[in-house]
Amino acid sequence: MEVRRVLIVDDEAAFTSLVKLNLEKTGRFTVCEVNNPTKALVAAREFKPDITLLDVIMPGQDGGQVLAELRAAEFVDLPVIFLTATLTQRGLHERDDQIDGVPFIAKPVEPKKLINRINEVLANS
């Protein structure tokens, strides 16, 4: 089975390292952690991810700005999932789990649910 490359951009280092542990334990992912959003583009160019998990509220640069930077560079079609602590699934419409067309997951999230969502987005891309 192909190992998918996941870039996670989140200022919570403890969170990103645990995401990395959970994802890599399945043997189906390899994860690159970025805790400083201003370094996301450089890391993406180096790591060449299949998918990016992007925190929304971060100091320095928010998730939206990081995404705009990636899209303006060579990552026009890179699948992205927003991670956010300030929205609830119920807060948006039941059938709508996207922010401005970008899929999102509300934190906290069970590892299994996160993996399912990554697989779902990768399958649709």
Binding site: L18, K25, P111
Partner: peptide, 25 residues
């Protein structure tokens, strides 16, 4: 609410990821 959500749910996310990992291990 928005402030609390950000400050509390992020550590909760870390806890849940950690618990998930421990459970699996």
């Amino acid at each position: 609410a928005a402030g609390i959500a950000h400050e509390v749910r992020n550590p909760l996310a870390t806890l849940l990821m950690g618990l998930g990992f421990l459970k699996g291990s």
